[in-house]
Design a protein around this nucleic acid. Structure first.
Lengths: 137, 137
DNA sequence: AGGTAAGCTTGCCATGGCGGGAAGGTCAAT
DNA sequence: ATTGACCTTCCCGCCATGGCAAGCTTACCT
C-alpha cells in the first residue's frame, strides 16, 4: 500500500508518516521497485495507534514508549499505566495553569467597563501586576 | 540602564527583550556610545506589562494589541475587554480539550490492572480507537 | 599597567511536531 | 503523447525562546 492510502487509513498525514520514520518512531517500510514506500496492515495499525495516542496528547517520546509496549507481547500493564499516569498529571497541571490564568483575567475584566471610556482595570491590572512582580516573586 | 538590569527589573530575559525588539513588539531603545542598549523607566514598564500579559497566556500578537492600547490614552476599554474575552474563550476551549483527553485516558486506565500481566485496556483502547477512527469520524 | 571576570554585541543552531512548497520521477487513464 | 495524480528528497518556516560562540567594553583587584 502506498503512503497516500496509508495516510488515509491511519489518519496520519503522509508528511507526518515520513517524519515518524525519520525520527525512528516507526520502522522504515520496504520499498516497491519504483522506490515507493509499501505499508502493510501491521504498519497501518501502528500508525493508527500513534494517531490515537497523539490525539490524547501523548508526546512523541511517550508514544515511542507506548508503541514499544504495544509491540511487546510480554509487556507489563503497569508500565503502560505509569506512562498514562504521568501524562494525566501533566494534563492536570496544564489545566490548573489555564484555570489560574482564567481566574486572574476574569478578576481583571470584572471591573472593566468595556465601553468607550479609556480607563480600564485590565490594562491597570497588567501594569500593576507587572510593577509588583519583581518584589513579590 | 543596560539590558541586564532591564531584564531583572522587568522579569523578561535579556534574550527575549532583544527578540521583542527584533519582531517590533517594542521599539528599539537608544544606544550608549559603546553600542549598549539603554532602557528608561517607561520601557521597563512596557516590558513588565508584557511579562504580565505573557504569563496570563496572551499570544505575542495579542500582546502587541494590548501594548498599543496600554500606550494609547484615548483607548476604548471595550477594545481591551474584547481581546481579553477572545483569549478567555481560547483558554476555555483548551481546558475543554484537555479535560476530554483526561476523561478518555481515565476511562481507558480504569480497567487496566497495572501489574505484571500483559493484557492492558489502555493499549487495547488505543488500538481500538485507532481502528474505529476512520469510519466513526 | 595588567589580568580577569562580568556584561554587552551580533549571529547561528536547537527545540516540537509538523506544514508548505520546489524539483523531479512514476503511474494510470485518456 | 499528454495530462494529472501520486510518489521521492530536500529545505525553509513556524513560536518563543534557550544555548553557545566570538569578539567587544567595563569594572575591579593587584
Amino acid at each position: 500500500m502506498n503512503i497516500g492510502q496509508a495516510a488515509e487509513r491511519s489518519s496520519v498525514p503522509a508528511k507526518t508518516i515520513r517524519y515518524y520514520e525519520e525520527i525512528g518512531l516507526i520502522a522504515a517500510p520496504p520499498r516497491h521497485v519504483n522506490g515507493y514506500r509499501d505499508y502493510d496492515e501491521s504498519r497501518i495499525n501502528e500508525l493508527s495507534f500513534l494517531a490515537s495516542a497523539r490525539r490524547l496528547g501523548f508526546s512523541i517520546d511517550e508514544c515511542r514508549s507506548l508503541l514499544s509496549l504495544y509491540r511487546d507481547e510480554h509487556r507489563a500493564s503497569a508500565d503502560v499505566k505509569a506512562i498514562a499516569a504521568t501524562h494525566v498529571a501533566h494534563i492536570d497541571a496544564r489545566i490548573a495553569d489555564l484555570k489560574a490564568m482564567r481566574r486572574v483575567i476574569d478578576s481583571l475584566a470584572g471591573h472593566c467597563h468595556g465601553d468607550s471610556r479609556s480607563d480600564c482595570s485590565i490594562i491597570d491590572g497588567l501594569a500593576a501586576r507587572a510593577a509588583g512582580q519583581p518584589k513579590e516573586v
